[in-house]
Design a protein around this nucleic acid. Structure first.
Lengths: 374, 374
DNA sequence: CTGAAAGCGCTTACAG
DNA sequence: CTGAAAGCGCTTACAG
């Protein structure tokens, strides 16, 4: 035995297939065959190879050597908008990941979460250096340099909730249509004064009211499309969307939603309805109303987006736009896997959404006294 | 230009550093230096190399080639109890992952989620073949073959919520003590008849009431320790823990918790208090009580475990054992990273827990009529 | 500041 | 059923 058999990582040097071969008196090819093509050698010889491997502490072919030779890694990557750790704080992203992981696990693939660096300086090093066979690009800003870097890898890829790019397959929803439906629900109830609690419009968002130029040039497609959908509904009701206050949040958390809603509710005249781009934010908006002792829905209607589990359990239960997060993940994963298998994948999948009516929306109080709705 | 410049993955063959070198009229070492050691060549030459690289569609050193040569991948692995996709459905696991990803992202490392295969036949292939520099082993059964396979890799590793093994560092909580405290809270309130809604005791659990042997030989340490803690408290109150019904769930979901609680609440005499091993399960227990029109806490006390966000928002708010999930993840991640850096890591970290008293526990109804507690 | 050589650990035709 | 040879793409001393 000519090497160190320490029991733990850092210290211990692992045996190689070559060493196992030498010790077993066979060629490296035979060791490889023992692991990869059992039919290529006698069971007895195979057992002998394994026996020697066990003795030398050889745990099977090194993934890097094998990967280099075979030109694949057995893992797919995942690129997310924000710092990775934020993804786990966002229920919608978690459901999406659940779907992706279901697809990759079915295929026996690992799922590599790629670090994006801090938001200020997105560092493309990690995406350039990630060992993966393909990747899912989720919710990134159109001008995020990481998208460029990722696409430059020329790996099979799937874009999710992003604009099409080249011939890369994509999956998403009709954000604009869904947002329009949500806003139309409110205009039909008779609301005339709206406020929008918005997700980030650009990666470097600082938060606060967004002017019309900022709204127009949002680089997150979902945010831009939803804004457009809200505006279309407002215009359709004969109102002017330009005057509608849009407060931009920097994080998709109830805290940010609360702050945004507080700012909007301090306006005069006060909006009677809030269009909120996510349920996480909407949960915060409910809290803001509570703090102002403004009851929802009587004094304020709120409509969210996503239909995360907490939406139904909120007080009051939230009217919101349902979208199939997990299914989106499964679809994205499968689309990627079929590319890995060399199958021709469909180009674009647009998944359905649905407005879910719950307890957070009613006609505005003004109409009650007019007797128009009672 | 002597090769194919397709824009998408599957089809396009990527250029190699060798080809870039040839085209630029330099050696491969110089190309490597352009990417890895800018100080080793003139800015002008470096720019020329990049220019050629761009033209040929070379996106930087291939991670596999580089990884093999450098003997590291830039990613750490994560092994989870169950199918990967279940992890995303478990809020406690998600918070743990949030912590791990925070630590890995700080270090610029990827996080590779390793597929475990279906539960019936755990397939160690993926853990043998995963390209990673180290790994976190989270909540696995003691006899899960994947743990063996993972440790055989002799990579730096951290065990979480699992028994110590060799000199691998570990992080966890005092499950037994925390469970005892939870149960003592109920015995002190005067409860005498308990039921336990248990997490899985072994990987192949089929669900249902668990006899004493099964309880004793549970291979999930957390489950076994919590059972022991409950039993110690019960004994301490002069009662016999052996008679206490323990219903084992197969998944950590509200649905499973509901089914378990329904089975326990159908017993005669009916327990006045439920010791539940997770908040997810406890949420289901609340639902079971609701369906029986048994009000909590008046007719039934319930104490959970984990203190996930939904626990505080439940009706009634859940008395439960808080534990620092995210911090556990951060600690595990950092412990792993310090090993990767060759630093000597501490062996074991036991994080604090705390019983959080909320609205789901009161003295048993029997005592009220006796006037002992009013 | 640049290049030639060796080698990271493996697998795959191919020849026997 | 087994082995010798080539090579996957890169980086690192080392020599100049």
């Amino acid at each position: 035995m000519y090497f160190n058999l320490s029991t733990r990582g850092s210290g211990g040097r692992r045996a190689t297939s070559k060493e196992v071969a030498a010790e077993a008196g066979v060629s490296p090819a035979t060791v490889s065959n023992a692991y990869n093509r059992p039919d290529q050698l006698s069971p007895a010889l195979r057992e002998r190879v394994f026996e020697v491997a066990r003795r030398l502490g050889y745990a099977g072919p090194d993934p890097l050597g094998r990967g280099l030779r075979r030109r694949r890694t057995g893992a797919v990557g995942m690129l997310y908008t924000d710092r990775l750790s934020y993804a786990f704080a966002d229920p919608a992203a978690v459901m999406f990941l659940e779907g992706v992981s279901q697809a990759t696990e079915e295929a026996g693939l690992g799922l590599l979460l790629i670090p994006g660096g801090s938001l200020g300086d997105r560092d493309p090093e990690a995406v350039r250096g990630a060992a993966m066979d393909g990747l899912v690009i989720y919710c990134m800003a159109e001008d995020d340099p990481l998208v460029e870097a990722a696409l430059d890898r020329r790996l099979p890829a799937v874009l999710v909730d992003q604009p099409e790019r080249g011939d890369t397959p994509s999956v998403g929803i009709d954000d604009e249509g869904a947002a329009r439906t949500a806003a139309e629900h409110l205009t039909r109830l008779g609301h005339r004064r709206f406020g929008v609690v918005s997700l980030k419009l650009t990666p470097n968002a600082t938060g606060g009211f967004a002017d019309s130029q900022r709204r127009e040039y949002a680089t997150y497609r979902s945010s831009r499309s939803r804004l457009k959908g809200y505006a279309t509904a407002i215009s359709g009701a004969g109102l002017s969307p330009g005057e509608m206050p849009v407060y931009e949040c920097t994080e998709n958390t109830p805290e940010d939603g609360r702050v945004a809603a507080e700012a909007i509710l301090a306006l005069h005249p006060r909006p009677t309805a809030l269009l909120v781009m996510s349920d996480q934010l909407a949960l915060g908006a409910l809290e803001a109303a509570r703090r102002r002792e403004l009851s929802v829905p009587e004094g304020l209607s709120v409509v969210g987006f996503d239909d995360v589990p907490a939406a139904a359990r909120a007080a009051p239960p939230l009217t919101t736009v349902w979208q199939p997060h997990a299914e989106k993940g499964v679809k994205a994963g499968r689309l990627l896997i079929s590319q890995l298998r060399g199958e021709e994948a469909s180009r674009t999948e647009v998944l359905p959404t649905r407005l879910v009516l719950r307890g957070s929306t009613v006609p505005p109080a003004e109409l009650w006294s007019e007797g128009g709705w009672s």
